[in-house]
Design a protein around this nucleic acid. Structure first.
Lengths: 95, 95
DNA sequence: TGACTCCATGTCTGTTCTGACATAGTTTCC
DNA sequence: GGAAACTATGTCAGAACAGACATGGAGTCA
C-alpha cells in the first residue's frame, strides 16, 4: 500500500478488507446476479413493489437484492431470477 | 399422468412433487454444482475429510454438498468451488 | 409547497442453514 | 473374513438469512 502526498493511501479494497480471491469471486458473482435482477425487472416494467408481490416478499428485500446487500444469499437471487423466467443457460451467460 | 397395465403410473417427478419450472432450474443448478465439487475434489486427489479440513468444515458437510442435499445452499457450493480454485468464467461453463 | 411514487436502509423475529458429532454403510486391501 | 479408509445420513445448537415493518431520501407533478 503506497502513501500519496495528499494523505490518501493507495491499495485495493480487497487487500484492505483482507478478502481472498475466493471471497472476491463470490462477491462479484452476487453483484452480477443482483444486476441481472434489476435488468429483468425493468425489462418487464415492474416496480420493486410489484416484483415483491409476485415473489411473495417485501419491497425492501427486492431493494437489498438489487443492491447485492450482504444479507442477501445467492440462493435468493437465483430463485428470483428463475422465477423471472431465466434458465441455467442464460444464467451462465450473465456470469 | 397415465396409468399403465402393471399398476405403475407414468408421470414426471416434477409434476408429482408439484415443482415449478423455477424450482426445477434451482434444483438442477444445485446438482450441477454438487457434481462439480466432487469432480474438482477428485481431480485434486483429496478425500472428503481432507477437503473438509481445507474448508474448515466437516466431512459430513462435504458429503452432503456432493449429494446436493436439500440442506446445502448454493452459497455454500459456490464458496467451496471458488476455494477450490474455480472462477466465475469456469463456473458459467459448468452450468 | 405538498402529495405521491419509487427506491434505500436499519432493525426485529421466526425460519433455515452450517458445522459438528455420532453412527452406519461401502470399498479396498491383506 | 476382518481391518482400515472412505463416504453417507440423522440430529442438534448456534449462526445466518428471510420477510416484514418503519422510515428516510430522491424524483415528479399539480
Amino acid at each position: 500500500m503506497k502513501k500519496l502526498k495528499n494523505g490518501w493511501v493507495e491499495g485495493s479494497v480487497q487487500d484492505f478488507l483482507e478478502l481472498s480471491d475466493a471471497d472476491m469471486e463470490f462477491i462479484e458473482t452476487r453483484r452480477a446476479l443482483a444486476r441481472q435482477v434489476r435488468t429483468l425487472r425493468q425489462e418487464r416494467g415492474l416496480t420493486q413493489t410489484a416484483l415483491a408481490a409476485r415473489l411473495k416478499t417485501s419491497q425492501s428485500r427486492v431493494a437489498k437484492m438489487e443492491a447485492a446487500d450482504a444479507t442477501v444469499s445467492i440462493d435468493l437471487l437465483l430463485q428470483t431470477l428463475f422465477r423471472l423466467g431465466m434458465n441455467r443457460h442464460q444464467l451462465a451467460k450473465a456470469l
